[in-house]
Write a protein that binds this DNA or RNA. Sequence first.
DNA 1: AGAAACAATACCAAAAAAATACCATTAACC
DNA 2: GGTTAATGGTATTTTTTTGGTATTGTTTCT
Lengths: 254, 254
Amino acid sequence: MTELLAAILSPERLQAGGSGPLYLKLRQTLEEAIQSGKLNHGDALPPERDLADYANISRVTVRKAVDDLVKDGLLVRRHGSGTFVVKPVSKVEQSLSRLTSFTEDMARRGLTTRAQWLDRGLFHPSPDEMMILGLPADALVARLGRLRIADDMPLAIERACISSEFLPDPAQVTGSLYAALGQRGCRPVRAVQRISAYNIKEPDAALLGVTAGVAGLSIERVSYLASGRVVEFTRSLYRGDAYDFVAELTLSDT
Amino acid sequence: MTELLAAILSPERLQAGGSGPLYLKLRQTLEEAIQSGKLNHGDALPPERDLADYANISRVTVRKAVDDLVKDGLLVRRHGSGTFVVKPVSKVEQSLSRLTSFTEDMARRGLTTRAQWLDRGLFHPSPDEMMILGLPADALVARLGRLRIADDMPLAIERACISSEFLPDPAQVTGSLYAALGQRGCRPVRAVQRISAYNIKEPDAALLGVTAGVAGLSIERVSYLASGRVVEFTRSLYRGDAYDFVAELTLSDT
DNA sequence: AGAAACAATACCAAAAAAATACCATTAACC
DNA sequence: GGTTAATGGTATTTTTTTGGTATTGTTTCT
């Protein structure tokens, strides 16, 4: 753990650097550590006591420096938890190079996420669902509706439907849907995503905390088993003002 | 049975490994055991009580670590039975093997297309263009603005900019931009696309024949040469009510 | 000398981490 | 089929870690 402290503080800077208030020198040092990438957004700052010990200064002095950076919006404190580097931009990007779960993806960007269940249960399929999933009329479908929240901002509404033969007990899905399917041996090998723009309407707008009419990103995904059967259909509606979908492409010859 | 516990836990790691929460160290240790093959998919994890006893920590701490791995889809619990290693999750290996042009894309959907030039010429670069394309201030950029029309309906506004060293005579571009670049030996090998939703404003709305405020799809693309140089930057604005972006993904193990 | 800023000490409060004790489900066994 | 032991599940409490604050001493500038 001490490597991080050493990397951030480089204590010779604090002592050698001429005259002037200690806390200002510390503030500058911390600022540099953030902007140089030694601390990424979402990272926790070492505890104030550790910083004080390592730099041989009092904790209050450390606090004074941290206070400044909090006031300027570079850091956020959480009582009992720690002090964290704030994210620089409000836009979120998702890369296509790996299909990661929502939670994983947000975590990599230093955002804490939670979900709120909107629906979770077994239902009689709608005609659309029967057609997309290839089900007989007397089958059942599991519907999973979640409101995805990143750093206390509602970011997306996600609605999935899966044939009950692949997911007989929707209540057992707590985290990743793919994980729940994988444990039952239903591993999709192919997926098709359709991305479109969309004016968000009520009641979705209310859930996402935007006014109706704002542009959103609708991402529909159909996953297939090796056999060609459709496993799941998911429709996600993202706030357009807070989410970008980023894809990196490798171009081949011809 | 104890050999397995010893192999998984290597308890010196837990005690010796510096500071930090116990459950995080345990989580990492278990993750390693799975990925190193000490535990194969389908195998049962030792019972939580055994793990706790052997590592001399409480069972709840063990559960906290296991909880994390379950949430991430590496493990599955079965009440009354045990906790098991799940099959590797699916990830996207490569998104799109090739970048299709607008014309190709539409042809595949059975639409005939034409284009109307909005801009075509050499200009002094804006600050944004200088930054994105990596140009000096005295360079020139070629700007190509087209209104894309499919089956007589305006569908997209496409604005591209390319350093003049790659495209000294924009007027010679009549069809595909990539074809024109290819003729001069500037074949991009990598591209990054950013897709976002957007409320279309004037004057673009008028060009596309929609009322202002309607949702549109903004697709920004930056293409790179093998050398890492940026070749072109294109921003396309599609009518949201008439265009979907479809991507097909192939999922592979691990 | 006095005032203001700076720095150190000591203690408070909230959150997370860890431990304890008990409940519910499964599966094996009789 | 019922019994039982082994397993994961959960509620509650205690301990540790973390930021928060009031008080006091110290320097510095006027």
